[in-house]
Amino acid sequence: MPTLARFDHVTRRFGQVLAVDDVSLTIESGTILGLLGPNAAGKTTLISLLEGLRRPSSGTVELFGGSPADYRNRQRLGSTPQETALPSTLRVGEVIDFVSKHFENPLPKAAVAEEFGLGDLLKRQTGALSGGQKRRLSVALAFVGQPELVLLDEPTTGLDVDARRTLWDALRRQHERGATVVVTSHYLEEIEALAQRVVVMGQGRILADDTLPAILAQVGLRQVRLTSDEADRIGRLPGVVRQELTGDGTTTFYVQDSDAMIVELVRSGIRFTGLTVRGATLEEAFLTLTEPKPQSQAEVVR
C-alpha cells in the first residue's frame, strides 16, 4: 500500500499549549482512517498540519512525499471548509465551479451535485441553505478535485440522524471509488460507521492505533452503577475494566459487556442494590485508555 502522508515525531506548540505531542503516524492508501478523541485532543491541529495551514514546531509532515506547504503537493488532497464559512453571497454552483477550477481533473458539477444531493440547490446562494445543506456542500467540496486523500474534520457534527446517514453513505461510495479518507470525530458512532482503522488521540498524543474492532473493545464501554458492600469482589469479575467510588456511596464499574457482567454478578451471589446501566461516554472511556497500566507505564519510563 503506497504511503500518502506521514507524520514523523511531529510536535506543535501554541505558546504554552502543546497541541500535538510527538506524533508519528503513517497514512496508507485505501483505508478510511478514523481520528477519534475528545475536544482539544489535537485532531484538528493534526489535520491542519496535513493541509499546510500550519507548520510543525518540530518533526516533519509529509504529504505525497513532499511538504504540505507547497501547493503542488495539495493537488491530490481534498479538504472541507467549516459550514459556517461558505461565502454567503455566492451560489452553490459557483462555489463548486470555483473550487473545481483549482484541480486538473475535477468531477463534473452535475456528478458532485447528484452524489451529495445538491441538484436542486445549485442556483441558491449559500447563505440561504439550511445547516444540513451547508454541511453537504462543505463535504462535497472535498471531493470535487477527485482527490486521493480526503480530510474531513467533524463532518457530521450537529446533523440529525437521517442527514448523517445520507452523508455517511456518500462518503462510503467515494471511498469505494478509490479515495482514502481521514475523518475526525468525537462521536464513537460516527467512527464505528465509517472507519476501518482507528487512531485515538488524547492531549495531543496517540493513545491507540488499531483496527476498528480492537478499538471498540477498548473504548466501547458501558457503565454499571450499584451499591454493594463487596464492590472489590465485583471489580474482579470478568470484563470489568475500571471501578470508581461515586460520592453518594454507589460504585461505578466500566465494563465491556454489561449483559455478561450482570449475569456473572447475579450468579456470584454478591448482594447489591440500585443497579443502573448506561453507555459510557467517550470521555469516560478515554480515561481507561489514559490511565497508566503496568505495561504502558514501562513504555513511558523507557
Partner: peptide, 9 residues
C-alpha cells in the same frame, strides 16, 4: 472560509 482557500492547490 479563508483557511479553507489556503488548503486548495
Amino acid at each position: 472560509w479563508d483557511p479553507y482557500l489556503r488548503t486548495l492547490p
